[in-house]
Design a protein around this nucleic acid. Structure first.
Length: 310
DNA sequence: CACGCGTGGTC
DNA sequence: TGACCAAGCGT
C-alpha cells in the first residue's frame, strides 16, 4: 500500500484491509473482486492484484508462510527491489539496502549532487551505509529523515541530526537540490459519463477498453477532438439506448490520473419505458443498488459521479 | 532507462 | 490553482 502512497493516505485502507484479510490464507482464498472493493479509492490497483497473487504463491509454494530469504521475497509478484529490501530489513533486520523518494533526496543533499545521476549511485551508497546489526532502524530512520525533516521544500535543517555533514546545507543549496525531474506534459481529456437511473438503481457497464480501470463502471466515452461533450453523450445514448433515453447535463467533475487531467461531463437520465431497453449484451450491464455500487465500483471518479446525482 | 499506472497532500 | 510529490512495480 505504501508504494508511491503517503502513509497518511494508506492507514485507513490498511486497517480495513487487515481486518477483512487478517492472514495470508484468507487473502489467498478471497476473490479479486472483494479485494479490489476494499482497495477501491487507493489507486494503483495492480498492487491489489499482485498482493492477491503473492498470497496465493505463498500458500502454493511456501506452505503459507511468508519467506524470509531476500531472493525469494523479491520473486513475489508486486515486490520489487525496494519492497524486498524494506521487508527483509525492517521486518527481519537483514542488512539489505532500500532506496525510496525520501532517501534519494536525503542522499542528494548530503552529497551536494546537482546533476542527474544513475539510480545505481543511491543503491550503492545505501549498501555501503546499512549497518549489519541495525538495518531495520537505519533504513526507517533514513526514510523518516526525508519524510519529516529533509522535506522537498523548506527542509528543517536546524533540526537535522546530520546537517553538519550536509554539502547542500554548507553551500546553501537545500532548495535547489535535488534537481526536479522534467515532467511529462499533462494531457487534458474530456470524458462523458452517463449516470442512468431506474427504480433507485444505477446502470453499470463492463468496458474492456475503459479509460478508467476496474471491471465495472458507469457508461463513459472519451470526447473525440472535433466533437462536443453533448454530441458524444448523444452518440453514447444512440449506441446504448437507440437514442431513446432523455438525458440531461448535470455537472463537470475534475479528476487527475497521473498525466491525464480529466474533465468528466456527467449526464443523467431516467430509463423508463422504451428507454429501459438497452442495446448491450446482458453480461456487460448491471443495474446496481446502493450496496452493489459500493462493492462494484473501483474508480473514485465514478464514485464522485454517483455522489453528484444524489 | 522510459513509460503507464490513481489518488490525495501540500504549498 | 497548478505543479510537485508520495515507503515503486512490471514491462
Amino acid at each position: 500500500m505504501l508504494q508511491q502512497t503517503q502513509v497518511k493516505s494508506a492507514v485507513p485502507y490498511f486497517n480495513r484491509f487487515v481486518k477483512r484479510f487478517p492472514d495470508i490464507a484468507s487473502l489467498a482464498h478471497a476473490s479479486e473482486e472483494e479485494i479490489l472493493a476494499i482497495w477501491s479509492g487507493l489507486g494503483y490497483y495492480s498492487r491489489a492484484r499482485n498482493l492477491h497473487k503473492a498470497a496465493r504463491k505463498i500458500v502454493d509454494c511456501h506452505e503459507g508462510i511468508f519467506p524470509t530469504d531476500y531472493k525469494t521475497v523479491l520473486s513475489l509478484p508486486g515486490i520489487g527491489r525496494y519492497t524486498a529490501g524494506a521487508v527483509c530489513s525492517i521486518a527481519f533486520n537483514q542488512a539489505q539496502p532500500v532506496v525510496d523518494g525520501n532517501i534519494r533526496r536525503v542522499i542528494a543533499r548530503l552529497k551536494g549532487i546537482k546533476s542527474r545521476i544513475p539510480e545505481k549511485y543511491f543503491w550503492d551508497q545505501m549498501s555501503e551505509w546499512v549497518p549489519e546489526k541495525k538495518a531495520s532502524a537505519f533504513n526507517q530512520a533514513m526514510m523518516e529523515l526525508g519524510a519529516t525533516i529533509c522535506l522537498p521544500s523548506q527542509p528543517a535543517c536546524r533540526q537535522c541530526p546530520v546537517h553538519r555533514h550536509c554539502l547542500a546545507k554548507r553551500k546553501n543549496l537545500q532548495n535547489s537540490i535535488p534537481l526536479s525531474k522534467p515532467r511529462k506534459a499533462v494531457r487534458k481529456v474530456d470524458l462523458v459519463i452517463l449516470a442512468v437511473k431506474h427504480r433507485g438503481r444505477v446502470l453499470l457497464t463492463r468496458q474492456e477498453d475503459g479509460f478508467i480501470p476496474g471491471k465495472w463502471g458507469l457508461p463513459s466515452r472519451i470526447v473525440p477532438s472535433r466533437q462536443t461533450p453533448g454530441e458524444t453523450a448523444q452518440s453514447l445514448n444512440n449506441k446504448m439506448f437507440g437514442g431513446r433515453l432523455p438525458i440531461e447535463f448535470l455537472a463537470i467533475l475534475k479528476h487527475s490520473i497521473t498525466h491525464h487531467r480529466i474533465s468528466a461531463h456527467i449526464y443523467t437520465g431516467n430509463a423508463t419505458g422504451k428507454a429501459s431497453e438497452i442495446l448491450e449484451e446482458k453480461d456487460r450491464i448491471h443495474w446496481a443498488n446502493d450496496l452493489q455500487l459500493d462493492a462494484m465500483l473501483t474508480s473514485s471518479l465514478f464514485r464522485k459521479a454517483i455522489q453528484k446525482c444524489r
